[in-house]
Structures are given as structure tokens and as C-alpha cells.
């Protein structure tokens, strides 16, 4: 008799969630995206079906992929764009997408445990009235919702990497300020949060086409980047594309590392500016006793490689968002550096 109410309740919730599914009551919430200060849980946004485990996206969310992705400790990432009904994101000549107010970018991080996905965190970028707001959410044990972690978190995670090696890592969920460290762009007046991945030059062609088909992206003719791991563009282009997506969000003239004078964005054409014979400025022990960011022909004596290979706080680059070395990235950038002609 005592169990009956619980039993009934289970039925009621199932029926309710079915009803919500049918009539579409669970849908992205303007209130959460635009108005609430810091919604405490991911479910408040209505981006996913709370009645199911994991992240089953609402039908208005459009999945996208990048040509070259940021390395995040071998985690699997599932990315979605939400644009309010009837609105369209415009595209500038340089391929930056201007999302309408009320849009959101949703990025889920997780690891396969066997063949089951275990979600770790979801990072949101919310397009509010005058700014983007970045917030991190950490998934619960039951995998039906994620809770706000403004101050970030460290989580011990076990997984098997792409080479079949079992690993344990002290996975770092960034705090709200750290989101901005990478996503911040100084417009000369203030430092504003901006999306990094969803730019035309970074988006996979299939994703661009999907966004077009859904009528949420304006047609455009902006140029695109190389895809570094597809090996189809020459080593230099691939390595520069890798550095662009993994480093240039800070290492550009308007980013967190502007003071270094080392700018790794794809468009840089001055060799010293993108590292060739560039001396360290404020690297401290990050320099590893080496003279140049990139020493042509000598990856092992290039500071960039030294810092990509380190897991030590104060040396490791990027400074946040990575606790494991990206061996393939190191191999690619090393290969490029080793083939750069040595200056006489």
C-alpha cells in the first residue's frame, strides 16, 4: 500500500512527459536564456528532454561540428545552436556569425563508458540583450539534468582514449570567469564574451548546410579554414589551423594573451608575430630555458612545443581546459616546425 503513491507518481510523470513531448510544452525558454540571472539547472532552459537520460535535444536545436576542434582531454563533444523561431543569424565578410538576441550555443562534454555516453558538463553561451553570457553546468549522477557550477569543478574521470589506453584525469570544468578568459574579446572599450567555434571558417560544411536548411543562417561567401586532422591541406596549413582553434582565442591582438605579442590566429602573416624566432616576454619558467616560441627546424627547442607537452600549471598551454597532452597535436605542430627553413 505504501508503494502505491510512488508507483502512481511514476506513471503520472511518465504521462506528463509524454504529453509535454506531444504538445511541445518543453521548449527552449526565453525567460531562462534572456532574463534569469543564473539559472540553477540546465533543465530550466528547455533545451533537452528531461524525461530521458542524457541530452536529447529539443527539435529546434541544430547540431553542428567544427573542421578543427579544440582539444579537451579526449572528451566527446556534442554541439548545438539554438536560434529563436523565425530569426536568422547574419554573417559578416570575415565569417563571424552575428546571432540574434535570444540565441544560445550549447556544448556538451562527456566520455564513453563502454558504449554508453556519460555526460560530464554542458557549457552554455547565451546571447542576451547586450552581451553573451557564458555559464558552466555539471551533469548529475542520474544523467537527467546538470547543475550550475559558477566556480567550476574538478572531477576525477576514467575513460579510454582513442588509442585504447585507459586513463584517469582530473577533469577541469571551467568557472564562469575562465569561460571569459578564452571567449573574451577586447573591443577597445571592454572585454566581451564571444563565441569561438561557430564562425564560418571553423564550421564543417555539412553543418553550414544544415543551418541553411533550417533557415537560421544567412547565405554567405566567407572563407574557411583547413581541417588539420584530415591531412588534406599541407602540414603548414594544418598546423596553423590547429594553433588557430587551440590557441588563438587568447593569442590574438584582442585576447587574454594580447600582452605576449604572440598571435596565433590563422590570418597572421608576420613570422615573428606567429612565433618564428619570437622571444618570450613574460613566460617565466614557461620558457623552459628556451629562446624562441618557434625555432625553425627544431621543434624540441621551441617553447610552443615545450608548453604543449607540459601538464604543469604555470607551464602548460592552453592554461585552462586541458589536463592531458594532445599527442597528435604535438606531433603535427612539431612536424611543421621541423620543416621550417632555418634562417642563416
Amino acid at each position: 500500500m505504501i508503494r502505491k503513491p510512488a508507483y502512481l507518481w511514476a506513471h503520472i510523470t511518465t504521462i506528463t512527459s509524454l504529453l509535454i513531448g506531444i504538445v511541445g510544452l518543453t521548449k527552449p525558454s526565453n525567460e531562462a536564456i534572456l532574463l534569469a540571472k543564473y539559472p540553477k539547472s540546465l533543465s530550466e532552459y528547455g533545451f533537452h528532454d528531461r524525461g530521458k537520460k542524457g541530452f536529447t535535444p529539443h527539435k529546434s536545436l541544430i547540431a553542428y561540428d567544427l573542421k578543427t576542434a579544440l582539444f579537451s582531454d579526449h572528451s566527446e563533444k556534442f554541439r548545438y545552436i539554438y536560434v529563436p523561431d523565425g530569426q536568422v543569424a547574419s554573417v559578416s565578410d570575415n565569417g563571424v556569425i552575428d546571432f540574434p538576441v535570444g540565441s544560445a550555443i550549447i556544448k556538451n562534454f562527456g566520455y564513453f563508458q563502454g558504449n554508453k555516453m556519460r555526460l560530464i558538463e554542458t557549457r552554455l553561451l547565451l546571447r542576451r540583450e547586450n552581451e553573451w553570457l557564458a555559464l558552466p553546468y555539471v551533469w548529475n549522477e542520474t544523467q537527467d539534468d546538470a547543475v550550475l557550477k559558477l566556480a567550476g569543478a574538478r572531477l576525477s574521470v576514467n575513460f579510454t582514449d582513442p588509442n585504447g589506453i585507459k586513463r584517469t584525469t582530473d577533469y577541469a570544468v571551467p568557472n564562469k570567469n575562465q569561460c571569459k578568459e578564452c571567449h573574451g574579446v577586447n573591443d577597445g572599450i571592454s572585454n566581451k564574451v564571444m563565441p569561438i567555434g561557430p564562425k564560418i571558417r571553423n564550421l564543417a560544411q555539412s553543418s553550414i548546410e544544415r543551418l541553411w536548411a533550417a533557415n537560421v543562417l544567412q547565405p554567405h561567401g566567407a572563407p574557411t579554414n583547413a581541417s588539420w586532422d584530415k591531412g588534406d591541406n599541407g602540414i603548414e596549413r594544418n598546423a596553423r589551423a590547429y594553433l588557430d582553434i587551440n590557441c588563438a582565442h587568447c593569442h590574438n591582438a584582442r585576447g587574454s594573451a594580447s600582452n605576449s605579442g604572440l598571435f596565433l590566429d590563422y590570418g597572421q602573416s608576420t613570422p615573428v608575430t606567429y612565433g618564428i624566432y619570437k622571444r618570450p616576454v613574460a613566460a617565466g619558467r614557461g620558457s623552459g630555458g628556451l629562446e624562441f616560441a618557434i625555432k625553425p627546424g627544431d621543434a624540441d627547442n621551441s617553447i610552443i612545443i615545450h608548453r604543449m607537452k607540459s601538464n604543469d600549471a604555470g607551464v602548460a598551454m592552453p592554461q585552462i581546459g586541458r589536463a592531458i597532452v594532445d599527442d597528435e597535436g604535438v606531433a603535427l605542430v612539431s612536424q611543421w616546425i621541423n620543416q621550417i627553413a632555418v634562417k642563416k
Binding site: R154, N177, A313, Q319, I320
Partner: peptide
């Protein structure tokens, strides 16, 4: 300390 490039960052 396990991460970040400094103790306290003020922006």
C-alpha cells in the same frame, strides 16, 4: 594548484 597561469587574476 593544478591549473591556471597565476594565483589571482583581475580583469
Amino acid at each position: 594548484q593544478k591549473g591556471s597561469g597565476e594565483g589571482l587574476l583581475v580583469t
